[in-house]
Structures are given as C-alpha cells and as structure tokens.
Amino acid sequence: MEPFGAVSPLGAVHEHVRAAQRGDPAALDALVRALAPYVTRVCGAIALDRGDDAVQETFIAVLRNIRQLREPAALHGWVRRIAVREAVRAARREAVPLPNGFEVAGPLPDLDAALDVRAALASLPPEQRAVLVLRDLDGLPEAQAAAVLSVPEGTVKSRLHRARAALRRALE
C-alpha cells in the first residue's frame, strides 16, 4: 500500500517535511492530510474503538517531534513506529484481559458474524493486531516488524501465527 496515497507524491511529502520542520503551519497541515489515510488504518486496526484517540496522539507526537527527523525519506518508517506505539498504548487502556494473556485459547468470543472484521480483531490482543498490521498492511519482513515492536523475531512469528489462525477461524 502506498502510505501517502496517490494525491501526495513522496517528493511533495518530503517538501512538506522540510517546511514543517521550520514550523510552517500550512506544511504541518499538509503533512497531516498526506499521512492520515495510513495512520487511520494502522490505528484503527490495532486500537479498534480507541482508534481515533490513537490517531490524535500519533499526530501530536509526529508534529511535536518533526524537527528530530533528519532525513525526510525516513518519514514513513518513523511515523509507522509512532503510530503502532500509540495504537498499542491506546488499546491497552481499554483492553479486556484475555484469560491466557497473549494466547488465544478455546472458542473465540461472539464470532457468529463471521465477516465482522472488527469482532474478529477484537478477539486478539493489541500486540497481535500490531503484528498483523506490520506484516499485512505494510508488508514488513519479520525482522523489521520485530525491530518496530522491540521484540525478538521469534515473538513476531508466534504472534503472527496465532493472529492469522484466530482470524482464519473467525472468518471461515
């Protein structure tokens, strides 16, 4: 998926970054609009009902720290890291503890509506949703996903396996 959409070519986004680092309000706003399609997907998929809060916290963190971004080409990876962190944090604020921690064990809760993606995702802990997003939205290799989440690569593999298995069961 193109992180910034067809209307905002990367070159233009990089120009927005430079101007935003100088505190140009119109560039800050243009950057938000360019990043919004990507950030709203990441935050919604991980934080679910707290997704809107995660979007706001992500953009506040991105724009507050935009001057620390040395290379505009690194923008996507930097924003991805912030969005995942804020979305997991927001989801944890509301997360209903699963009986076995990160394990999805036994029958999945209320998945009669087999095509209800939200219900299927809600059966997973935020950390598993984050792995799904990084692998299936961003297409990151496991090693990079592990780096974003600051966990070992093996943890990414096991979380991904459990998440995909749970979703498959839910959606079949």
Partner: peptide, 27 residues
Amino acid sequence: ALGRARWTDEVAASLSTLARARAIAAG
C-alpha cells in the same frame, strides 16, 4: 479471506478536525 491490507479499511479510525488542530499546535 480478508485480502491484503483491505481488512484495515473495515476498521480504519478517523481524524477529527479537532485532533488536526491540536496536532498542528503541537508542531
């Protein structure tokens, strides 16, 4: 069954105008 990345469309969050203004202020 979900399609690559398409499932994230189903659960995408939104960016309110209020959040947009607060974010600009932070920058």
